[in-house]
Design a binder for these strands. Sequence first.
DNA 1: TCGTTTTTGAACATTTTTGATTGATTTTTG
DNA 2: CAAAAATCAATCAAAAATGTTCAAAAACGA
Lengths: 250, 250
Amino acid sequence: MLTPERQQIILELLKTKNVVTVHEMCEATDASVSTIRRDLAQLESEEKLRRVHGGASRLHSKITEPTVMEKSAKNISEKKAIASYAASLVENGDCVYLDAGTSTMQMVPFLRGKDIVVVTNGFHLIDPLIKNEIETYILGGKMKVKTGAVVGAKALDSIETYRFDKSFIGINGIHEKYGYTTPDPEEAIMKRKAIGLSQKSYILADHSKLKEVTFSKVAEISEASIITSYHEKDELKQLKSLTTVEVVRK
Amino acid sequence: MLTPERQQIILELLKTKNVVTVHEMCEATDASVSTIRRDLAQLESEEKLRRVHGGASRLHSKITEPTVMEKSAKNISEKKAIASYAASLVENGDCVYLDAGTSTMQMVPFLRGKDIVVVTNGFHLIDPLIKNEIETYILGGKMKVKTGAVVGAKALDSIETYRFDKSFIGINGIHEKYGYTTPDPEEAIMKRKAIGLSQKSYILADHSKLKEVTFSKVAEISEASIITSYHEKDELKQLKSLTTVEVVRK
DNA sequence: TCGTTTTTGAACATTTTTGATTGATTTTTG
DNA sequence: CAAAAATCAATCAAAAATGTTCAAAAACGA
């Protein structure tokens, strides 16, 4: 096995596990402990991971590691199913806004090969978008460390200069009375603005977000369509009276 | 089998595999290891792939791998010395523009702890800036895949909304008659604008850039100060008659 | 066809990588 | 707190891969 291949496996392991033992890495790569140790020393010097006694851990960097966010995010398979469906709504020629967040990030691989333009405020989305050969615009503004989102007054100005065919928004709370809500006011403003600038807006939300209410209101239920995953029928009834709800089976 | 045909097979293999061993390539092409090695040497010099011990790997990283860029960048120690000096010019309270590029990226670690605001169009700079706990704004606009820079009309609009105390610009050519030049016109415009919006502008350039001229003009020599590394005195004489030149010893 | 140039594969010395071993260091256990 | 267990860094020899050299084979031009 070649060195880069081995190191790649180590890094992949770390993406899923946060901490990995030397022994686990030996098994995964069929290499000896010495070799693994040498790899670890090198990868640490490249700041790809942090060595700990017995193995290695991810460097819990503030913004750089979408994987942290990604991994800590629950319901990944559910999100993938939702993302896949959402991506299927995107047609060639569309100008699309992708909100910062894990839900929308899951969409990116499914957009590969489409002839579209994507605008985003999500730092973490840039890399996958580029990798999937999608023409990408980033909003200008303040980098928010915790979420990797571009926010603030400059970002609002920035988004104003675009118009979107479709926007895809991640959300933390959906409630028939209180509408769409998210914890951070600055990000809420961005989401609201994006919805306002789009012909059609879609809210991506796994089932854990239904009936939830968080701090900052983004919009009324009727202002966007909802894409969520399978659920007891009754829970969606009220929402369906207010807007389109697409239910995806995971 | 003809040489181009063989090399094509090698590249096709890499498209599917990320890393390929020499042995695999021998089997796929019915050539000897010597021949494969010669092909690899050539293909690497053409920047079609990266050799690794035992085979070759794709130079994946369209944008994601600053390390690759960083590695392939020459004169790193020289750039570091220049960057260190440049960073020492930044004072608390400053609002600073950092151009996209390896030279300016080297500055970031030296800025740690300063109470400043940084605006940049360099995607690659975001991560180190955040890691070093610096308040960071990114310009909005089109992501340029090759260099990781934000450019284009939107980026121009975006930068217009800022004013800088100091700007630090990487450059490819410095010539007393033709001024500062860089190969890419879109990036040249960004650099020119940044200089126009700054109280004081500094050009970062290792010695290989002196007396060079490339395609797109950024500004006249007199419009910015130059920070470069030690050099035969005479070469700088003419430049010094036009602007301030700081010479750093590496 | 003949002489020249280019490409190829094999041989060999050199370099790099690898896995095992050792003693030191750290962590866990009793 | 001390012994036991686990992990670590350093070292070394074997194995693998590499660059270089050279002669044979192939391609080329006249």
